[in-house]
C-alpha cells in the first residue's frame, strides 16, 4: 500500500442514477508523474474531488499517501498541493494577498516565513513581477500560474494538478511541463489530469485513461503503449486485390482505402507481406509498418475522441 501515493479501490460516485465515476482502481506509484487522461466529462475532476475530500465517495475506498480518505484527509492534505478545476481567487485582492490568505488559513503554516515562502512560490511560476496586481487584472494564464503557486506554498509529497495547462499559451504550457519535470526530480509525486494527451505525454511516466467514468487503461507509458497494435499500410492502385492478399495472410482488421489497404500486422513479417503482394501481381507503391501514437491510442480508448460522453 505504501508504495502508492494514490490508491483507490472500487471507487464510485453516483449522482442519482448516473455513475460519474464507476468502480475505478487508481494506482499512482510514489515518485511517478501520472497522466490522468480522458475527455471532458469522463469523471477525472469528480475523482480528484474525492481524492481531496471535497466530495464523498458513494462506494469504494481511497488511500492518499497511505492515509484513508476522507477519514484522515486533514492529516494528509498538508502534504498535498492541489489545483482543482481551474484557478479561483478573490478578484479584488492581489496575487500575493490571495496567497497570504490561503497561507493564513493553513493551521500549520509558520507565519514568520510566510512572505518568503509566498515570494518563492510566485518566483517559481514567474509571477513575482505581477504579485501586487489585482487578481481580476490577471490573464487566464497568470491565474493558472497563481493556482500552481498556491499549491507550492509548502513542500509537498504529492501534487494533484487538474488541467494545469488550461488556458496557457504554448510557451506557458512548456513552462508548466518543465515545472512538473523539475518537481518530479525533487521526488514529488505528480498526478496531472488533462484532456490533451500531447501536453503531458512527454513528462509522464505513467498514464491512466478515463472513459465515461471508467478507467479503461492504466500503467507505465510503455505498458499502455504495448496495448497498441502495429499496423501495415499498403499504397497501391489495386486496393481490392491488396486487401484480399492481406486477408489471405490472416491479418485482422483489413480495410480498403482509396489509396490502398490497411490492416493490423498480427506478427506477420513485413517481408512476407510484400513478397506475397508482389507474387499476386499487386503493384506496391509504398509499404509502411507503423505503431499508432499514444494519441491514436488515446482516441481509440476514449471512443469518439473529445466529445462529451452521454
Amino acid at each position: 500500500m505504501t508504495d502508492l501515493a494514490v490508491a483507490t479501490h472500487g471507487l464510485v460516485k453516483r449522482f442519482g442514477q448516473y455513475a460519474a465515476v464507476n468502480e475505478i482502481d487508481l494506482a499512482v506509484p510514489r515518485g511517478s508523474v501520472y497522466g490522468f487522461l480522458g475527455p471532458n466529462g469522463s469523471g477525472k475532476t469528480t475523482t480528484i474531488r474525492m481524492l481531496l475530500g471535497l466530495a464523498f465517495p458513494s462506494a469504494g475506498d481511497i488511500h492518499l499517501l497511505g492515509e484513508p480518505v476522507p477519514e484522515r484527509v486533514s492529516a494528509v492534505l498538508p502534504r498535498v498541493g492541489s489545483l482543482v478545476e481551474g484557478p479561483a481567487f478573490h478578484p479584488y485582492l492581489s496575487g500575493r494577498a490571495n496567497l497570504m490568505r490561503l497561507d493564513a488559513a493553513d493551521r500549520f503554516a509558520e507565519p514568520g516565513t510566510a512572505k518568503q515562502r509566498i515570494d518563492q512560490a510566485l518566483d517559481r511560476v514567474g509571477l513575482l513581477a505581477a504579485a501586487r496586481k489585482r487578481y481580476r487584472a490577471y490573464s487566464l494564464g497568470m491565474r493558472q500560474r497563481l493556482a500552481i503557486a498556491a499549491a507550492l506554498l509548502q513542500p509537498r509529497d504529492l501534487l494533484v494538478l487538474d488541467e494545469p495547462t488550461n488556458g496557457l499559451d504554448p510557451q506557458g504550457t512548456r513552462e508548466v511541463r518543465h515545472l512538473i519535470g523539475s518537481l518530479a526530480e525533487e521526488g514529488t509525486t505528480v498526478l496531472v489530469s488533462s484532456h490533451l494527451l500531447s501536453e503531458v505525454e512527454q513528462v509522464c511516466s505513467h498514464v491512466g485513461v478515463m472513459r465515461q467514468g471508467s478507467l479503461v487503461a492504466q500503467g507505465t507509458v510503455a505498458e499502455v503503449r504495448s496495448g497498441a497494435k502495429p499496423t501495415v499500410t499498403v499504397s497501391t492502385a489495386m486496393p481490392r486485390e491488396a486487401a484480399e492478399v492481406l486477408r489471405a495472410l490472416g491479418l485482422s482488421a483489413v480495410i480498403e482505402t482509396a489509396a490502398g489497404a490497411e490492416a493490423e500486422q498480427d506478427g506477420v513479417a513485413p517481408e512476407r507481406i510484400v513478397a506475397e503482394l508482389v507474387a499476386r501481381g499487386v503493384g506496391v507503391r509504398g509499404f509502411v509498418v507503423g505503431t499508432p501514437s499514444l494519441e491514436d491510442l488515446f482516441v481509440a480508448l476514449t471512443g469518439e475522441g473529445f466529445d462529451v460522453g452521454e
Binding site: 481531496l52 475530500g53 484527509v73 479561483a88 481567487f89 493551521r107
Partner: peptide, 17 residues
C-alpha cells in the same frame, strides 16, 4: 461562488474550523 471554498478546504482547513 468564487470557487475559493475548494481551495480553502484543500489547504486544508477542516470544515468545522
Amino acid at each position: 461562488n468564487t470557487g475559493t471554498l475548494r481551495y480553502l478546504l484543500t489547504v486544508p482547513v477542516t470544515r468545522t474550523r
